[in-house]
């Protein structure tokens, strides 16, 4: 889908997002909030898809990257916003998102390094561990409000920002994977030994996948922080990571369009299930099991990929 006019798609998507955003004051606040949630989840799922889907490195710590980005961005705006005149606020926000993203990608580098030696279940455990360590550290850091959370974050996230950045994420991930260079991600996913025999350095591709994936997770965290205006360490626990993993699997590992669709469905589904609030999560877990039994290749994948030993 990215072959022809991918850049045009990107520009068009950003333009539409910005235009719609200008009218957002007329929208129902509830639907506006949900739409922003949808876009944030698209960013998270698509960025995780680069690590888990395209490169085949099973990571269970995406919520950790998101947390670092969210807290980083929120600290930036909390300290810088009062010093800057109103017209420049969007710049501060952009800078804060960038800082959050870079902080998360530095962490991605740190997580990526052990992944050079570990594979499969071991890697899953280590990424899970990194996520939990970040949560525990945040829970004990007084600067960011410790266990009671970080309050008073300005509301800066708009439809334009989220959908615009979601478009950028989709573009960057798709363009990276579909470039000559980026075919290496898929080669590493399919067979590491064969890939290195063909002169591809698996180590490098794995670390790059972690850095890019973590960057966008950090950006999503920043958007989330300035959308909810409140951050709490418990919001970034193991369950949050699982939610994102489920989106990627539901959409089909390594299939960008499917993953986007899954992110939309899984964000909206709980809202529709509000009427069954007390059995909502039971249905959710049944959905995961049923899906793995019936369609392990993802909901929207028509031709099953050949089974790979991930």
């Amino acid at each position: 889908m990215m072959s022809l006019g991918a850049k045009r798609f990107l520009l068009a998507a950003i333009l539409i997002a910005a235009t719609v955003s200008a009218f957002s004051a007329h929208f129902n606040r509830y639907f506006l909030g949900i739409s922003i949630d949808v876009a944030i989840n698209i960013i998270l799922a698509v960025s995780l898809n680069l690590i888990n889907g395209h490169t085949g490195q099973f990571s269970l710590g995406h919520a950790g990257f998101m947390a670092v980005g969210g807290y980083g961005a929120a600290l930036c705006t909390l300290h810088l916003s009062p010093l800057v005149p109103a017209p420049l606020q969007p710049l501060v926000f952009a800078g804060a998102l960038l800082v959050g993203g870079v902080a998360a990608s530095l962490l991605g580098l740190v997580v990526g390094i052990p992944s050079l030696r570990l594979r499969g279940d071991y890697l899953a455990v280590v990424t899970l561990g990194f996520g939990e360590i970040i949560r525990v550290i945040l829970q004990n850091m007084e600067v960011v409000g410790a266990a009671s959370g970080l309050k008073g974050i300005a509301k800066m996230t708009t439809l334009g920002w989220t959908f615009g950045l979601a478009a950028v994420t989709v573009y960057v991930v798709a363009a990276a994977v579909n470039s000559t260079y980026g075919r290496g991600f898929i080669a590493v996913h399919d067979d590491e030994v064969a890939a290195s025999a063909m002169g591809i350095n698996p180590t490098r591709y794995k670390v790059i996948a972690f850095i890019i994936g973590a960057f966008f997770a950090g950006v999503a965290g920043g958007l989330y922080a300035h959308h909810k205006q409140f951050l709490s360490p418990t919001g970034f626990d193991f369950m949050k990571s699982i939610d994102i993993v489920v989106m990627v699997i539901l959409g089909g590992m390594g299939r960008t369009a499917g993953v986007i669709a899954a992110a939309v469905i899984l964000t909206l589904l709980p809202e529709y299930l509000r009427g069954f609030a007390d059995i909502r999560m039971i249905l959710y877990s049944l959905l995961i099991i049923g899906l793995m039994m019936a369609r392990p290749q993802g909901l929207f994948t028509l031709s099953p990929k050949k089974a790979t030993s991930a």
């Binding site: 699982i242 993993v245 959710y284 877990s285 049944l286 099991i289 790979t308 030993s309």
Partner: peptide, 21 residues
């Protein structure tokens, strides 16, 4: 006989099912 990842996710699903039930 499915890929290991499928079984792993199913296991997470079973765990959530028992907890929430």
């Amino acid at each position: 006989n499915r890929p290991k990842l499928t079984v792993l996710i199913t296991a997470i699903g079973v765990s959530l099912l028992i907890e929430y039930t």
